[in-house]
Simulated assay, not measured.
Amino acid sequence: MRELRDSIRDLVNRSVEQAGESAHATVVVTTEAGIVQWLATSEGVFHLEVADPALPRRGPLARLLRRRRGETGGQPFTDRQLGLLTDSGFAAGEPNYELRPDESGIDNDHIVHIIVTVLHDILGIRDANAISAEVF
């Protein structure tokens, strides 16, 4: 789990650093089990989302492939998973579960803890090699 935490810490730091150069940065972490994404400014992460697995993933290629295979969205979060999201400060949004820190914000170490908790305890990710990430 240390490797996962270190990878997420690196992504949070890179997003904040990149935001200092371009006003904001977006990070999308994709796993087989779901998607976690966030927006950052040079002051830190200010918006965090966990994609609802029951909703079909967007994008023309993804839709085309799902239609060919007759697939819809994945399994919805269990009550336990929803409880963990709520306990972490997330609320149901459209279409994802969202965490928006208040004016006082959340420090980067807490953001890393929240993201690792989502990946590990909710999406079942145990290894940093099980994620792919894009910072833009």
Rank of each mutant, 00 (worst) to 15 (best):
M1W: 07
M1L: 04
R2C: 09
R2T: 14
R2G: 08
E3D: 15
E3H: 01
E3K: 05
E3N: 07
L4P: 02
R5D: 05
R5N: 06
R5L: 11
S7C: 07
I8T: 06
I8P: 02
D10F: 13
D10S: 14
D10H: 11
L11P: 08
L11M: 14
V12D: 14
V12Q: 09
V12S: 00
N13Y: 12
R14W: 13
R14F: 04
S15E: 03
V16N: 01
E17W: 09
E17T: 02
Q18H: 12
Q18G: 02
A19Y: 03
A19I: 01
G20K: 07
G20P: 00
S22A: 10
S22L: 11
S22T: 05
A23Q: 09
H24I: 15
A25W: 00
T26W: 13
V27W: 01
V27S: 04
V28A: 08
V28F: 12
V28Y: 07
T30Q: 11
T30M: 11
T31C: 07
T31W: 02
T31G: 04
E32H: 09
E32G: 08
E32V: 15
E32F: 13
A33Q: 15
G34S: 07
G34I: 12
Q37G: 00
W38M: 03
L39R: 12
E43A: 12
G44L: 08
F46G: 02
H47Y: 15
H47S: 11
H47L: 12
L48Y: 10
L48Q: 10
V50G: 03
V50F: 02
D52E: 15
D52F: 13
A54M: 05
P56K: 11
R57Q: 12
G59N: 06
A62I: 08
R63Q: 09
L64T: 08
L64Q: 12
L65V: 14
R66P: 01
R67I: 05
R68A: 10
E71Y: 14
E71Q: 09
E71C: 04
E71S: 04
G73R: 13
G74D: 11
Q75L: 14
F77W: 07
T78F: 04
D79L: 14
D79S: 12
R80V: 15
Q81L: 09
G83D: 13
G83C: 04
L84V: 10
D87V: 00
S88H: 06
F90W: 01
A91I: 10
A91L: 13
G93M: 00
G93D: 00
E94P: 00
P95D: 08
N96R: 06
E98T: 14
E98V: 15
R100N: 11
E103P: 07
G105H: 07
G105R: 10
G105L: 00
N108S: 09
I111A: 14
I111T: 14
I111K: 03
V112S: 06
H113I: 12
H113N: 14
I114W: 11
I114M: 12
I114K: 08
I115G: 05
I115W: 03
V118E: 15
V118C: 06
L119A: 03
L119N: 10
H120C: 00
D121V: 10
I122N: 01
L123S: 03
L123G: 05
G124N: 07
R126Q: 13
R126V: 14
A128G: 06
N129T: 14
N129P: 03
N129A: 13
A130S: 14
I131H: 05
S132E: 15
A133M: 11
V135G: 01
F136S: 13
